[in-house]
Nucleic acid binder design. Structure first.
Length: 399
RNA sequence: GAGGAUGUAGCUCAGUUGGCAGAGCGAGGGAUUGUGGAUCCCUAUGCCGCGGGUUCGACUCCCGUCAUCCUCCCCA
């Protein structure tokens, strides 16, 4: 057994990477706060059936990507592959929708999918996401998208927003029928698409094979089939986006993988990689035995966003160097500086001052503070600027 | 689940037709005890991913396996 090896697809997030991770989650959290979202912290394990019923039984996520296991009481459980199902389960279970006419929740945590790992795709990965329950109005779609857009702005990531509407149970069947008819009327689709057109015809629309792309150009478009309600909803959303100068690309071939979406779907894409995606799901809550509740939400892949975060500026580091006789004063000085909010590292290694300064330099200290018997006598410490190579005495009383 | 590439020091990588495992960077120590980065000197580290096979002999050839990276499927 290789105990000194992490499991395939379960990666450590170390040091610098952990900082990027936190910058991203903090950015979203700050926005959640001003948009008045509340946090919900959920279990990682749920009944497998919850995901079958919400994510959709014919999706790949459910069919081949879930970590499923049986516990000692023979319950069939799964590690959550996404966050929305759990959120909906929780609010229905606790009747939150009856207490709050609208409910805005965000979550953060690990998700699990049994896939072949590659860039921006791990078996354990982290998402931060949010859900708005109880708002029919497209203003909810807009605000959700706006919040995400602001997040990328704050993270200085240039990103492309794609939107589409995939209709509702009233209008989508007609479109599906038209699409299936079209797909059957033509030949030359790739092997995968021939499977898709039976299993999940909408997915043919975003096939990457060139020949398929050509054939799809002629295919019927969902937007032409939207019922009046869906059409107005979609148009309002676009109006709001324009009003706020949020650039977007209308992608009539954008379909989301999960079954529960209705009307609005959107993705934030960087270099061809989807880093955040979401949409409206007006019927999921009732399909999980809750009251009819329209909803819209999104999830962002933290590791995927991390790929586009540059170096993070650090707080200047103060290395505190002491001579053996001044040890106790050094501890007091460090304590005092830290209470003033400075980042202080006490240099404990090194036998002489030269060595200690070498270490201070090595750990990247911007300043070094030196304290020895002379300084104690004079009630000062030496503050040395490591870049300018200048130093001065700062008064300090050692009580 | 399918295809391809790659696994040698902490990191980046050499390693000839099969013949005692190397470099650079980094790390530790030193040119002495109150001032760092440069230079110089010294030192160490390896189940050559793992398991089998061929061979007098395998880092090198063959088979298997595991892992990493890149496509695809799918997805955040």
């Amino acid at each position: 057994m290789e105990i000194l090896k992490a499991i395939r697809g379960f990666d450590d997030i170390l040091l610098e990477e952990a900082k990027k991770f936190r910058v991203i989650t903090n950015t979203f959290r700050n926005l959640f706060e001003v948009y008045n979202f509340e946090e919900i912290i959920l279990p990682i394990v749920e009944y497998k059936e919850l995901f079958d019923r919400s994510v959709g039984e014919i999706t790949d996520i459910v069919q081949k990507e879930m970590f499923v296991f049986e516990d000692k009481s023979h319950r069939v459980l799964a590690l959550r592959p996404e966050g929305t199902a759990g959120v909906v389960r929780a609010i229905v279970e606790h009747g939150l929708l009856y207490k709050h006419p609208t409910l805005k929740l965000f979550y953060e945590g690990s998700m699990f999918r049994y896939e072949r790992p590659q860039t921006g795709r791990k078996r354990q990965f982290n998402q931060i996401g949010a859900e708005v329950f109880g708002v029919e109005d497209p203003i909810a779609d807009f605000e959700t998208i706006k919040l995400c857009f602001e997040a990328f702005n704050k993270l200085s990531i240039d990103i492309i927003l794609e939107i589409n509407s995939i209709g509702c149970p009233k209008c989508r069947p007609k479109y599906k029928e038209a699409l299936v008819n079209y797909l059957h009327s033509i030949g030359g689709l790739c092997e995968d698409c021939n499977v898709r057109k039976e299993k999940n015809p909408l997915r043919v629309l975003d096939c990457k094979v060139e020949t398929c792309k050509e054939l799809i150009k002629e295919a019927p478009v969902m937007l032409d089939y939207l019922c009046e309600e869906c059409d107005t909803h979609y148009k309002s959303l676009k109006t709001y986006l324009k009003e706020f100068n949020i650039p977007y690309i209308e992608n009539p071939r954008l379909v989301r993988g999960l079954d529960y979406y209705t009307k609005t779907v959107f993705e934030f894409i960087k270099d061809g990689l989807t880093v955040l995606a979401g949409g409206r799901y007006d019927y999921l809550v009732e399909s999980l035995r809750g009251p009819h509740t329209p909803a819209v939400g999104f999830a962002a892949g933290i590791e995927r966003i991390m790929l586009y975060i540059n170096e993070i500026p650090q707080k200047p580091l103060y290395a505190l160097v002491y001579l053996e006789e001044a040890k106790i004063y050094a501890l007091k000085l460090a304590n005092s500086l830290r209470q003033d909010g400075l980042k202080v590292e006490i240099i404990t290694r090194g036998t002489n001052l030269k060595k200690k300064l070498e270490i201070a330099n090595k750990i990247g200290a911007s300043y070094t503070i030196i304290i020895g018997p002379e300084e104690i006598r004079k009630n000062v410490y030496i503050l040395k600027d490591m870049n300018k190579k200048e130093q001065k005495e700062i008064p300090f009383s050692f009580s």
